[in-house]
Measured scan of single mutants.
Amino acid sequence: MSIQHFRVALIPFFAAFCLPVFAHPETLVKVKDAEDQLGARVGYIELDLNSGKILESFRPEERFPMMSTFKVLLCGAVLSRVDAGQEQLGRRIHYSQNDLVKYSPVTEKHLTDGMTVRELCSAAITMSDNTAANLLLTTIGGPKELTAFLHNMGDHVTRLDRWEPELNEAIPNDERDTTMPAAMATTLRKLLTGELLTLASRQQLIDWMEADKVAGPLLRSALPAGWFIADKSGASERGSRGIIAALGPDGKPSRIVVIYTTGSQATMDERNRQIAEIGASLIKHW
């Protein structure tokens, strides 16, 4: 058993032996400061991975655009179909130039040979490839079927209504393609630790998130040596930015963190910096 498999397999085991986890309101002070700095709403939640207890939250039940963070949920739905014998990670999917949409750094290189379902999930999560996400959405029946999958998990909040890139429109008060921090954190925890997916599929999902290559300026920039993080970021119109993550010290995840912001006029660099500073406060007061 690899170190990674050891880590995921023991998450339920550690729940019975973990020390009490204490919240630190200092992080919420930073979240509120980020709102002031960005001139935008910020949603935040910090969840204990083992118990599911909410440690801190700010606007946990307000809607925010999901942006590309939905791609983790999408690959969770794909893995659920794999577990049920309805899909194979090794199945190759062929597509054409007409299928390519904006920001497809991986799929645009494989027009001649296509990509496997496994490769598409990797591209969608680690590189946020939009065509990969659309191709995967097609395999499960489209955005409405992803919403149905989430409903069956008990998440009646999170919804996907459109495809890439239209889902990134982020119109104020538009509930399409949105979630709430509390709903996203709970759903992510179920995917990573619950019985919905097999152990192998849970491991695969967290491996893809751990290999994320496009979230460096966010929480990863504040991470001390030896800490673990598996994450997925997102960005969209109207100053929207977000990240969902499982992270913790000693090389294993122990908390879920979800951060969303929307409605800012700030630059992408400034949005990144504010999220990184929230992460730094979280780690300092861990």
Rank of each mutant, 00 (worst) to 15 (best):
S2N: 13
I3S: 12
Q4A: 13
Q4D: 08
F6R: 11
F6V: 10
F6D: 06
F6T: 09
V8S: 15
A9E: 06
L10Q: 06
L10A: 13
P12F: 12
F14V: 12
F14S: 07
F14I: 15
F14Y: 10
A15T: 15
C18V: 14
L19Y: 15
L19G: 13
V21I: 09
P25S: 08
E26K: 08
D33A: 14
D36I: 15
L38W: 06
L38G: 05
L38P: 05
A40D: 07
Y44T: 00
N50C: 12
G52C: 02
E56L: 04
S57D: 05
S57W: 11
S57G: 09
R59P: 10
R63T: 06
P65L: 04
T69H: 04
L73F: 06
L74V: 06
C75G: 08
S80T: 11
R81Q: 10
V82H: 07
D83G: 03
D83T: 02
A84E: 14
G85R: 10
E87Y: 02
G90C: 11
R91G: 02
R92C: 07
Y95H: 05
Q97L: 13
N98T: 14
V101G: 04
Y103M: 15
P105G: 03
T107L: 06
M115V: 04
T116A: 06
R118E: 08
R118D: 13
I125D: 01
T126H: 11
T126G: 10
A132G: 03
A133T: 07
N134T: 02
L135M: 09
L135S: 02
T138K: 15
G141E: 04
P143R: 12
P143L: 01
P143V: 03
K144M: 11
K144F: 10
K144R: 14
E145L: 09
L146I: 07
F149L: 06
F149N: 03
N152I: 11
M153S: 12
T158N: 00
T158H: 00
R159H: 12
L160I: 12
L160G: 01
D161H: 03
W163A: 07
E166C: 11
E166K: 08
E166Y: 11
E166Q: 10
N168Q: 06
N168R: 02
E169L: 09
A170G: 14
P172H: 09
N173V: 08
N173Y: 12
D174G: 05
E175P: 15
E175M: 12
D177R: 00
D177Y: 01
T178Y: 02
T178A: 02
T178I: 02
T178K: 01
T179L: 00
T179A: 00
P181V: 04
A182G: 14
A182P: 05
T186F: 15
T186G: 13
L188A: 04
L188I: 09
L197T: 02
T198S: 14
T198D: 08
A200P: 13
A200R: 15
R202P: 15
Q204L: 13
L205V: 04
I206V: 07
D207V: 11
W208C: 01
E210V: 15
A211G: 11
K213G: 09
V214G: 07
V214R: 06
V214S: 08
A215N: 03
G216R: 06
G216A: 10
P217D: 12
L218A: 03
L219V: 06
L219H: 01
L219Q: 01
R220E: 01
S221P: 06
S221H: 10
A222G: 07
P224W: 01
P224T: 02
A225V: 12
W227R: 00
I229T: 00
D231G: 03
K232N: 00
S236R: 01
R238E: 11
G239S: 06
S240T: 06
S240V: 02
R241T: 07
R241L: 05
R241C: 05
G242M: 01
I243A: 01
I243G: 00
I244Q: 00
I244K: 00
A246P: 00
L247S: 00
G248A: 01
P249N: 04
D250V: 06
D250E: 12
G251V: 04
G251L: 08
G251D: 08
K252N: 10
P253L: 06
P253C: 06
P253Y: 06
P253I: 06
S254W: 06
T262N: 09
T262M: 11
G263R: 07
Q265E: 14
A266H: 09
A266S: 14
T267N: 13
T267Y: 04
T267H: 10
M268T: 07
D269K: 12
E270A: 10
R273C: 08
I275F: 11
I278L: 05
S281Y: 10
H285A: 04
W286F: 05
